[in-house]
Simulated scan of single mutants.
Amino acid sequence: MSVADDIDPINILLVEDNPGDVRLTQEAFKDGRISNTLHVTRDGVEALDFCHQRGEYEDAPRPDLVLLDLNLPRKNGDVVLDELKSDPALKTIPVIVLTSSESHEDMIRSYKLHANAYLTKPVDPNEFIETIQTLELFWLSVVRLPDEVS
């Protein structure tokens, strides 16, 4: 029996506007051993609509984990992170900032807004996939994720 056999499928929301990074993330999770469903939104407004189950996302599942880019159209990642962590119904969802920014200020701001982790995307595609698979192993098999809080 593998680790994945003991784990319920996980709903992951990837908030990413770069099609190449979306594809690499999908590939990394597909090759992983943890059963999950990866949902993708391409800007901050869509991400918040998904999490709040508004508009076209009214039937969306509550994410168990959010992977959030900072540099997004319409509403940037800082705004999304702040809104998620300010909402009593959503603040327990772990949010991992997954960004190309190596800025110390971005990292500090993300943690001040209660990000659960801050990862810089490697430029090399193989390293990117390895980073996602390591993230998957830790966050989906080692860490206990909270159920919806009422």
Score class of each variant (00 low, 15 high):
M1E: 12
D6S: 10
D6I: 04
D6W: 03
P9K: 00
N11Q: 06
I12P: 02
I12A: 08
L13E: 06
L13D: 07
L13K: 07
D17E: 12
D17L: 08
N18D: 06
G20K: 11
R23Y: 13
R23K: 15
Q26G: 05
E27L: 14
A28T: 00
F29H: 06
F29E: 08
K30A: 14
K30C: 03
K30S: 10
R33P: 02
R33L: 06
S35C: 00
N36W: 04
H39T: 07
V40Y: 01
T41K: 07
T41C: 11
R42Y: 01
G44T: 00
E46V: 04
E46I: 04
A47K: 03
A47N: 00
L48M: 10
L48P: 02
D49N: 12
C51R: 04
C51L: 11
H52E: 02
Q53S: 14
E56M: 08
Y57M: 13
E58Q: 14
A60D: 01
P61L: 11
D64L: 10
L65W: 01
V66I: 13
L67I: 09
L67Y: 04
L68Y: 02
L68V: 07
D69M: 11
L70A: 13
N71P: 00
N71I: 00
R74H: 11
N76E: 05
D78N: 15
V80I: 08
E83Q: 14
L84A: 12
L84Q: 12
S86L: 04
S86V: 05
A89Q: 09
A89S: 13
L90N: 01
K91G: 07
T92A: 15
P94C: 11
V95W: 06
I96Q: 00
I96S: 06
V97W: 06
V97E: 09
L98F: 15
T99S: 15
S100T: 15
E102C: 09
D106K: 10
I108T: 14
I108R: 12
S110T: 09
K112R: 15
K112C: 12
L113Q: 12
H114K: 12
L119W: 03
T120D: 03
T120E: 02
P122G: 12
P122T: 13
V123W: 00
D124T: 08
D124N: 10
P125D: 05
P125W: 08
N126Q: 09
F128W: 03
Q133K: 13
Q133W: 05
T134W: 06
T134R: 14
L135R: 06
L137M: 08
L137N: 08
F138R: 03
W139L: 02
L140C: 15
V142K: 15
R144W: 02
L145K: 03
P146R: 13
P146Q: 09
D147R: 14
S150F: 11
S150V: 12
